[in-house]
């Protein structure tokens, strides 16, 4: 029992050290309110720690962590019910990255990150997951493993996402 306990703690500690920053970014993608976001991060970590009691190499650690994190985040959103009832869009209809909430305050790389976050907040859950996972360097196969989308569905979304990210550069060239 003691051995299993230590192993669960160790597995969690390793995963948290590797994915702690990604979990924070993921939580910000789901929850715009700073206090609720902190709460969501804690919930994800608590679920992750508990989940290692059930981890038997069913998939890679990376997929496991992202599955737990996204499942907790989606449940969090459904509980709060604030994201329901429209207002969210798919990658298919978004034509350009959203403007950051406070364009004056951010410059360069930070402004790009702010635009990405504002775009993520506009997206429907599945497209939001694809964008968040894509930005974290997951491959198309890994994105499919986490989200449950088919390879075709993932690649079409990645294609649209790449076009969306390239648009500011294309616009600059035209100017």
């Amino acid at each position: 029992m003691q051995r299993a306990h230590i192993s669960q703690d160790e597995q969690y500690a390793e995963a948290a050290a590797s994915f702690g920053a990604a979990i924070q970014r993921l939580a910000r993608g789901y929850e715009a309110d700073a206090d609720l976001c902190r709460d969501l991060v804690q919930d994800i970590h608590a679920a992750l720690w508990r989940s290692f009691a059930y981890f038997e190499q069913q998939c890679s650690i990376r997929s496991w962590v992202y599955r737990i994190a996204h499942n907790v985040a989606v449940s969090h959103i459904q509980r709060s019910r604030r994201q329901r009832g429209g207002g969210l869009e798919t990658l298919e209809v978004i034509e350009e990255l959203a403007a950051p909430d406070n364009p004056e305050a951010e410059t360069g790389e930070a402004q790009m990150a702010a635009r990405l976050l504002a775009t993520i907040h506009r997206l429907a859950p599945t497209d939001r997951q694809v964008m968040l996972l894509f930005l974290e360097d997951l491959t198309a196969a890994e994105i499919g493993e986490v989200t449950g989308l088919s390879p075709t569905a993932v690649s079409s979304r990645i294609h649209r996402l790449k076009a969306l990210l390239a648009k500011p550069y294309a616009d600059k060239e035209i100017d």
Binding site: S51, Y54, F55, I68, V72, T126, E145
Partner: peptide, 12 residues
Amino acid sequence: PPVDGGRNSVLD
């Protein structure tokens, strides 16, 4: 989520 969330994709 800790029991079932890791074994299943988000959609499942």
